[in-house]
């Protein structure tokens, strides 16, 4: 029980990631696949941000006055690196989702469907 509670952030990230991964590989509809990709990305973001946590620490904005800076204790502030990485990843994931939706829109215009097996049938017929 102690072991389960000590690492609970990882259990949740694996659970969410499995949901997204399942949607990615076994859903037939391309839009549902993209929803799976988004859930997968959310799981990775949760994983990174949870790595940056430190018990008893505050957000990584250094308290300072106008005088000379005093000694800064790194354990009093959470790890800023995962936040930086995920900050850019969130915006990039939104724009790549836009590209995927545009591609799906074009696929729908060409084949009249976004079901993967129906597209495969049309491809093999020709």
């Amino acid at each position: 029980m102690e072991f389960l509670l000590a690492k609970y952030n990882y259990w949740f990230y694996i659970l969410i990631m499995m949901v997204g991964f399942y949607a990615m590989i076994s859903k037939n509809n391309l839009v549902k696949k993209m929803i799976g990709v988004s859930i997968f990305q959310a799981a990775i973001i949760l994983f990174y941000v949870s790595i940056g946590a430190k018990r008893g620490a505050t957000i990584p904005i250094i308290e300072h006055g106008h005088d000379a800076v005093h000694h800064i204790d790194p354990t009093a502030y959470i790890n800023p690196l995962p936040h930086v990485l995920m900050l850019t990843a969130i915006v990039v994931s939104v724009s790549t989702l836009g590209v995927a939706l545009a591609l799906i829109s074009k696929i729908y215009a060409k084949y009249g469907t976004i079901e993967e097996d129906e597209i495969n049938e049309q491809l093999t017929d020709v």
Binding site: P60, I61, I62, E63, H64, Y77, P80, L81, H83, V84, L87, T88
Partner: peptide, 8 residues
Amino acid sequence: PNVVTSVL
């Protein structure tokens, strides 16, 4: 002071 900004 905002370390996220300076790292970014």
